[in-house]
Design a protein around this nucleic acid. Structure first.
Length: 859
RNA sequence: GCGGGCGUGGCGGAAUUGGUAGACGCGCCAGAUUUAGGUUCUGGUGGUUUGUGCCGUGGGGGUUCAAGUCCCUCCGCCCGCACCA
C-alpha cells in the first residue's frame, strides 16, 4: 500500500458520527464515584449572544483537553456547561427588532448549543441550564432571602453610578474609567434607594485568603488585592478655630511624619467644605468648578492640583504650629475620612500643592547616613520630630499612634477601597427581587412558600424605563406580613449575582428537582479544580464568586469558603487587520498583495494599510466564523490549531496558513492509521510489553523515544502548555513515518505505539482518535481507557553525542556510552581534529567533565 | 507615578532549569511522485564566510571552565491600577 494514495480524511462524517454517539449515550456524564478521585473542570459559562466566536472556541478547547486528559488519567471528571442568560443585550434586541427577550435568549442558546456540540466538547449535558430558567432564578430568590435574613443584604439610599445610555445603575466594579462597562457612556451620579450586598463583611477573609490561592495567576491575585485596597493607619482629630463641631478628622498611613505637617487638606465633597461654601463664595466657586470637571476621567487625570484656603487654622496635636486648612481637589471623599494632613517634604502631591501655594516644607525623615534628600524620602530616621527623633519609620509609627491614643487625639484605623456591592438594576430581563413594599410594614421579604416570583411574560418595550414598573398587574400583591395591599420590588438583580453561584449548581444533576444546592453533592465536587476564563473577570466575577461561597457557607447552604482551586486565564485570539488610507476597516478577503509586495484593495486598487494583530472584533473586520472553519476543516483541526504553537495564556495570532497546517497534520495522522491497519496493526497484536532485545536497534530506539514522548506530552498537559504537547506529538508522528516499511515485521511494537498515540492525541483531537480506536479494533471509547504509562528505564539514554568544548566553545562531539570511563572519553575527545587544533600546543590548564552533559578543555 | 508580564531566526515559539541555542509548526528552497498545478513523501533552512572559522537570545557591564538562563545597569513593548492619604 502506498501511503500517499490514501484518500483524504472525511472529517465531517466521522465528527458527526461520534458527536451523536457521545450525546446519545451520555458518554461524559459525571457521577459521584467513590472509587475514583474527582476532578471538576469548568470554563466560564457563556453569555448567549447569538454566536460562538473563536475566543470561546479557544477557551472551551483548553477546558475540554483538560477534562479528557483527566478522565484518561483515571479521575471522575465533572465538566459541565450552561448559559449566563439574563442581561441587557436581550432587552436591547427586543427593543430594536421587536420580539421578546426570552425568545431571543432561548433561540440563541439553541444556536450556540449546536455550535458547541459541533466542536465535540465532552460536557455532561444533563447538567445544562440557563440562569433565566425559572428553576434557577427561583432558587436564587431563596438565596436572596437567606442572605437578607442573615443581614448580608440591606437597602440604602445612596449615590449611585447611573448609565444614561443603558438607563441602569452600575456597580463600582462596572465603571471603567468613568464610563459604563457596556455602553461606554460617561457615568452620572444620582441618589437612589438600592439593594446592597454586604461584601465588606468578608473583606478581611477575602484579602487574607488571596495568599492561599497558589493556583491563581499572580496578576489576578494582585488585581484583587489592589481592588480590596487595604490601608492601615491612624485617624487623627485636629481642633480648629472655626468653633464647635468643626474638628477635622484625617486619616494617614504615615502618622510618624506628623511633625512635618504644614497644612490640612479636605475634599471638596467634605461636609465642612459644603458647609463653608454656603457663606464663602470662593469655596463655593471652587467646588462647582471641581464638580463640573470631575465627570470626564481624562480631565481628572491631567488636572493640576489646586485648592482654596478656608482661612481656618487647625492646631497641631503636639506643637504650637497652626495649620491652614485648604479645600483641595486631590483629596477624595470616598476614601479614608476625606481629609488629610499634608507633609510636603515626604509626599509628592503635598509637595506639588505646597510649592504652588507657597506653603511651608518641613523635612522630618533623613537617610541613616545623614545626607539630606528632598523630597519623598520614605525610609530613614526621623528628625525634627520631638519625641520621635532618632526613631526608624516603623518605630516612629508605633510610638506616635500610641501617643495620639494616650492624649485622645487619634486611633488606629484600617480603611478599604472595597465597598458594598449594589445589586439593584432597573431592568426587566433579570431575576426579580423577592421583596414587597407595604405602606404599613415597610419593606418586607416574601415568604419562601411564595417563591418563585416569576417574571411576567406580557411586557412591552415601547417606552423607556423598566417594563416591570409599568406592568398593569404584576407588581400589585399582598403584604406577607399584614396581608394588606403591597407593591412588589420592580428592580431585578445584577446578572453578576446569577453567575456568583452557578458553579455550585452544576454539582447537582438535573434529576434533582427541589434543592439546587445539596450540601453533599457540593461537598463532593467542590472546589473547582481547574477554572478557565478570560482575565477580564479578574476582579468582578471572581471576587463576587469568592464572596458568595463564604456567604452561602455562613447561611448553611454549603461548606466551601473558596470556590476555585486553580485558575487559568487564556489569552485573546488576535488577527491581522487592514484599513483603507482613510481609516476604514477592510475584510482580509478585500485585500491582496500586488506585484510590488504592497497591499491593495482588490475592488478599487487603492492602497491598503496593514495594521496590527488585534483582538478579533466585528468592528475591525478581523473575525473568523467557527462554523465556517468546522465546515471546511473539521472540529479536530480547529481544536488542534487553537492550542498549537502559542502557550494558552498568551495572545494567539490567528493565521489561515497555520490552520491549514493543522488540517494537513490531521490528514497525515489519518493516513498513518489507515496504513497501519493495512499492515495488520491493531488490538489483536497488542499483548504486553515488547521484548526490546528481540528488536532491531532502530526500532528499539523508536520505542524508547516513544516513552519519552509519553512523558513529554503528559508533563506538558499537566502544566497546561498544550503547544508543547502538540509539538511532541508531531515529532513522534514524524518519527513513526520514517519506519513505515518496518511496520509489518514489528506489529506488536507498532500496535502499542499506535494505540498509545491515539490516547495521547485524544484530548486534543477526539473525533479522529475515536474513529481510529474503533477502526483498529480497540474496545469501548478511548475515554474508557487509561492514559499510557512510560517506563523510566526507557528514558535513560545509553549512548550520547557528548559535546566537546575548548574554552567553552563547541569543537565537536563524541558518540559514547553514557557510563564510559572519563579517561577513555578524554582520549577520544582529544582525537577530534578541531579539538586538537584549538588546543594546539597550549598547556592544558583544566579539564571539566560533567557526566552525560559535556567536556570542556581549558587552555 | 505604582504594580505585573515580556524582549530568542522572516513569523509563532522550544531549550532537560547553568552544559551542543533555535525542538515542533508556519513560510521559503530543493529532490522524488504527478501529464501539469495542487496533494503526498524526503531533505534543507539564524547571519556571514567556507581552508577553516567568526558573529549571534533588546543594549552595556559582571560572576563562571561554561550564561538565553545568575547578578548589576540601561533601553523598548504590552497589561492592570491610578490624586488611595
Amino acid at each position: 500500500m502506498d501511503i500517499s494514495e490514501i484518500a483524504l480524511y472525511n472529517f465531517s462524517a466521522v465528527e458527526r458520527k461520534w458527536q451523536d454517539f457521545w450525546l446519545k449515550n451520555e458518554s461524559f456524564r459525571a457521577d459521584c464515584s467513590p472509587s475514583k478521585k474527582k476532578y471538576y473542570v469548568l470554563e466560564m459559562f457563556m453569555y448567549p449572544s447569538g454566536k460562538v466566536h473563536i475566543g470561546h472556541v479557544r477557551n472551551y478547547t483548553i477546558g475540554d483537553i483538560i477534562a479528557r486528559f483527566k478522565r484518561l488519567r483515571g479521575f471522575s471528571v465533572l465538566h459541565p456547561t450552561g448559559w449566563d442568560a439574563f442581561g441587557l443585550p436581550a432587552e436591547n434586541a427586543a427593543l430594536k427588532q421587536g420580539g421578546h427577550p426570552r425568545d431571543w435568549t432561548y433561540k440563541n442558546i439553541d444556536i450556540m448549543k449546536r455550535q458547541m456540540l459541533s466542536l465535540g466538547f465532552s460536557y455532561d449535558w444533563r447538567r445544562e441550564f440557563a440562569t433565566c430558567d425559572e428553576k434557577y432564578y427561583g432558587f436564587q430568590q431563596k438565596i436572596f432571602l437567606a442572605l437578607h435574613k442573615k443581614g448580608l443584604i440591606y437597602r440604602k439610599k445612596s449615590e449611585i453610578n447611573w448609565d444614561p445610555v443603558d438607563n441602569c445603575v452600575l456597580a463600582n466594579e462596572q465603571v471603567i474609567g468613568g464610563c459604563g462597562w457596556r455602553s461606554g457612556a460617561p457615568v452620572e451620579r444620582r441618589m437612589l434607594s438600592q439593594w446592597f450586598l454586604k461584601i465588606t463583611d468578608f473583606v478581611d477573609e477575602l484579602l487574607a485568603e488571596i495568599d492561599n490561592l497558589k493556583g491563581w495567576p499572580e496578576k489576578v491575585r494582585i488585581m484583587q488585592q489592589n481592588w480590596i485596597g487595604k490601608s492601615e493607619g491612624c485617624s487623627i482629630k485636629f481642633r480648629t478655630n472655626a468653633g464647635n463641631n468643626s474638628d477635622i478628622v484625617v486619616f494617614s498611613t504615615r502618622p510618624e511624619t506628623i511633625f512635618g505637617a504644614t497644612f490640612l487638606a479636605i475634599s471638596p465633597d467634605h461636609p465642612l467644605a459644603i458647609e463653608l461654601s454656603k457663606t464663602n463664595d470662593k469655596i463655593k466657586a471652587f467646588i462647582e468648578e471641581f464638580k463640573r470637571g470631575s465627570v470626564a476621567q481624562e480631565f481628572l487625570d491631567k488636572q493640576e492640583k489646586s485648592g482654596v484656603d478656608t482661612g481656618i487654622l487647625a492646631d497641631h496635636p503636639f506643637t504650637d504650629r497652626k495649620l491652614p486648612v485648604y479645600v483641595a481637589n486631590f483629596v477624595l471623599m470616598n476614601y479614608g475620612t476625606g481629609a488629610v494632613f499634608a507633609t510636603p517634604a515626604h509626599d509628592k502631591r503635598d509637595y506639588d500643592f505646597a510649592v504652588k501655594y507657597g506653603l511651608q516644607i518641613e523635612q522630618v525623615v533623613a537617610s541613616p547616613e545623614g545626607c539630606v534628600e528632598l523630597p519623598y524620602l520614605d525610609d530613614g530616621i526621623l528628625i525634627n520630630s520631638d519625641f520621635l527623633n532618632g526613631l526608624s519609620i516603623a518605630e516612629g509609627k508605633k510610638a506616635v499612634i500610641q501617643k495620639l491614643c494616650d492624649i485622645g487625639a487619634g486611633k488606629r484605623e484600617v480603611f478599604f477601597k472595597l465597598m458594598d456591592w449594589g445589586i439593584s438594576r432597573q431592568r426587566y430581563w433579570g431575576c426579580p427581587i423577592p421583596m414587597v413594599h407595604c405602606e404599613k410594614c415597610g419593606v418586607v421579604p416574601l415568604k419562601e412558600e411564595d417563591l418563585p416570583v416569576i417574571l411576567p411574560h406580557d411586557v412591552s418595550f415601547s417606552e423607556a424605563g423598566n417594563p416591570l414598573d409599568r406592568h398593569k398587574t404584576w407588581k400589585h400583591t399582598r403584604c406577607p406580613h399584614c396581608g394588606g395591599e403591597a407593591i412588589r420590588e420592580t428592580d431585578t438583580l445584577d446578572t453578576f449575582f446569577d453567575s456568583s453561584w452557578y458553579f455550585l449548581r452544576f454539582c447537582m444533576n438535573d434529576s434533582d428537582d427541589e434543592n439546587l444546592l445539596k450540601k453533599d453533592d457540593v461537598a463532593h465536587w467542590m472546589r473547582v479544580d481547574q477554572y478557565i476564563g478570560g482575565v477580564e473577570h479578574a476582579i468582578l466575577h471572581l471576587l463576587y464568586a469568592r464572596f458568595f461561597s463564604k456567604a452561602l457557607t455562613e447561611c448553611g447552604f454549603i461548606n466551601v469558603r473558596e470556590p476555585f482551586e486553580n485558575l487559568f486565564t487564556q489569552g485573546m485570539v488576535c488577527c491581522m487587520t487592514y484599513r483603507k488610507e482613510n481609516g476604514d476597516w477592510l475584510f482580509p478577503e478585500e485585500v491582496q498583495k500586488n506585484a510590488n509586495g504592497e497591499y491593495e484593495v482588490i475592488a478599487t486598487g487603492e492602497r491598503a494599510i496593514v495594521g496590527n494583530f488585534e483582538k478579533m472584533s466585528k468592528s475591525k473586520k478581523n473575525t473568523v466564523d467557527p462554523d465556517e472553519i468546522v465546515k471546511n476543516y473539521g472540529a479536530d483541526a480547529l481544536r488542534l490549531f487553537v492550542v498549537s504553537d502559542t502557550p494558552p495564556d498568551r495572545d494567539f495570532p490567528w493565521s489561515d496558513e497555520g490552520l491549514e497546517g493543522c488540517w494537513r497534520f490531521i490528514n497525515r495522522v489519518w493516513r498513518l492509521f489507515i496504513y497501519a491497519k493495512s499492515q495488520g496493526i491493531g488490538s489483536e497484536e497488542c499483548s504486553g510489553d515488547p521484548v526490546l532485545e528481540n528488536l532491531d536497534s532502530d526500532i528499539q530506539k523508536l520505542y524508547k523515544d516513544f516513552h519519552r514522548t509519553i512523558k513529554n506530552v503528559t508533563d506538558s498537559l499537566e502544566e497546561r502548555t498544550m503547544n508543547k504537547a502538540v509539538a511532541y506529538i508531531r515529532d513522534c508522528v514524524n518519527a513513526v513515518y520514517l519506519y513505515l516499511e518496518k511496520m509489518v515485521d514489528n506489529k506488536p511494537v507498532f500496535s502499542i505505539i499506535i494505540r498509545d498515540l491515539i490516547k495521547l492525541m485524544d484530548p486534543i483531537a477526539p473525533h479522529i482518535c475515536e474513529e481510529a480506536w474503533n477502526m483498529l479494533g480497540f474496545n469501548g471509547l478511548v475515554s474508557d481507557n487509561s492514559w499510557p504509562d512510560y517506563k523510566e528505564e526507557y528514558l535513560e539514554i545509553s549512548t550520547i553525542d557528548l559535546p566537546i568544548q575548548v574554552n567553552g566553545r563547541l569543537r565537536g562531539t563524541v558518540s559514547i556510552a553514557v557510563d564510559e570511563s572519563e579517561d577513555v572519553i578524554f582520549e577520544r575527545a582529544l582525537q577530534i581534529p578541531a579539538v586538537k587544533n584549538a588546543i594546539s600546543s597550549k598547556p592544558l590548564k583544566k579539564r571539566i567533565f560533567i557526566k552525560g552533559k559535556i567536556i570542556n578543555f581549558v587552555v
